[in-house]
Simulated scan of single mutants.
Amino acid sequence: MDLFDDLPEPTQTAGEASVQKTCPSPLEDRGAKRKREAPDDDDEVVEEQKLEEKKVCKGVPILKGYVAARRGEREEMQDAHILLSDMKTCLSILPTTVSRLAYFAVFDGHGGARASRFAAEHLHHTLALKFPKVETENLDKLVKKCLLDTFRQTDEDFLKKASSQKPAWKDGSTATCMLVVDDMVYVANLGDSRAVLCRMEQKMQGGDRKCVTLALSKEHNPTIYEERMRIQRAGGTVRDGRVLGVLEVSRSIGDGQYKRIGVISTPDLRRCQLTPNDRFIILGCDGLFKVFSAEEAVKYVLHILQNGSVEKKEGQTEEEGHYEAACQRLANEAVRRGCADNVTVILVSVSF
């Protein structure tokens, strides 16, 4: 079965790209960077012009990310996150047909914060190294392979570092990573952190548009039949809804002591093409979704965007002020509702 679960495709797209941040740390130089040479003749100039026209016609949404993180009642903040509205700065070479890359991710650590922080610091660099470098008609297939290889490599790198410590680290982490290639969203996730999309759809007989919540991720816990069977076939057991009665997720980065009994680092992948009807995407750890359903979280944010009165920060537009307030208030409300866990929310606005 194809690991991609395709979500509804749009009928039209339009818009421009937007840049927020650059890569927080430079990519290590692992070889000479190849430079594109100038065209030698008129045919190459015409071909480049065609590629540029293709980019403009394709339509690239404007994305802006906001984040709120709360320690809750935990002694330590074990969540980590990263927002890269412009991931092109991490790549030495990018296919000329791709005009924009963006990356947003949330990692929910357990047993410590080392696995989540490692993933937040390294996963996107590995992704950049493995991202397709040349033009291809099979970009979707290569992006899928790139994400699978990146998660495997990140897990292996962390486990190698963890096992070299005295005593060995036993940390683990969920991962929900969203890679946006032009107007296509790819979500790769492990564990119980989630990603959801708010799409506005016209009612059948006119009137106001209604909000539709689309799941962009799939939870992995050992109570799910397929997950439990894999663990049991590998010699593990599931007790009280946990692996060996301890681990609450069935896929993760790290957790070296559970890898031999069926806990894997292979993510589920979903893709969705963004449309002018899309408003925002929420990425959140289970601390948020323990007290909010996906639909409740989307409606909570939408209400603030449409009706909330907010104070803008210096330099923010009114719309940016609303998104910032919605993100912060959503995290605060999760704590107020009694979530004792860490809470991390990434809110990504979408506009064309």
Rank of each mutant, 00 (worst) to 15 (best):
M1Q: 13
L3S: 13
D6I: 15
L7P: 07
E9N: 08
G15A: 01
A17S: 10
S18H: 09
V19G: 11
Q20N: 15
Q20Y: 07
K21I: 14
K21C: 12
C23W: 09
P24A: 04
P26N: 09
L27T: 14
E28K: 15
E28G: 13
D29G: 15
R30F: 11
D43S: 13
E47C: 14
E48D: 14
Q49F: 15
K50D: 14
K54S: 13
C57W: 13
K58I: 15
G59Q: 08
I62W: 14
G65Y: 01
Y66N: 06
A68Q: 02
R71M: 02
R74K: 06
D79Y: 00
A80H: 01
H81N: 08
H81D: 13
S85R: 02
D86T: 08
K88T: 10
K88Q: 15
T89D: 05
P95A: 03
P95Y: 07
P95N: 11
T96C: 14
L101H: 08
A102N: 04
Y103M: 09
Y103Q: 12
A105E: 11
V106W: 03
A113I: 10
A115C: 03
A120E: 01
A120M: 01
H124E: 01
H125I: 05
T126M: 06
K130G: 14
F131S: 05
V134D: 08
E137T: 13
N138D: 12
L139N: 11
L142W: 09
K145C: 13
R152Y: 12
Q153L: 08
E156T: 06
E156G: 09
L159C: 08
K160T: 07
K160E: 07
Q165C: 10
Q165K: 08
A168P: 08
K170A: 11
S173C: 05
A175V: 03
C177E: 00
V181Y: 04
D183R: 10
V185N: 09
Y186W: 06
N189I: 02
V196G: 01
M200A: 06
Q202F: 12
G206N: 00
G206C: 02
G206H: 03
D208G: 14
D208M: 13
R209S: 13
K210M: 11
V212E: 05
L214V: 14
A215H: 10
L216G: 09
P222T: 03
T223W: 06
I224T: 11
I224V: 14
Y225Q: 15
R230T: 05
Q232E: 15
R233M: 12
T237F: 03
T237D: 12
D240G: 12
V243F: 03
V243E: 04
L244K: 12
G245P: 07
V246W: 07
L247T: 01
G256M: 04
K259Y: 06
K259D: 09
R260Y: 09
S265Y: 01
D268V: 15
L269C: 08
R270A: 08
Q273P: 12
Q273H: 13
L274E: 02
D278Q: 03
L283V: 06
C285K: 01
D286R: 09
V291Q: 00
E295H: 11
E296R: 00
E296Y: 01
E296F: 01
V298E: 00
K299Q: 10
V301H: 03
H303N: 12
I304V: 08
I304T: 10
N307S: 11
G308F: 00
T317C: 08
E319A: 09
E320R: 00
A326H: 00
A331T: 02
C339L: 05
N342P: 06
N342A: 02
V348T: 07
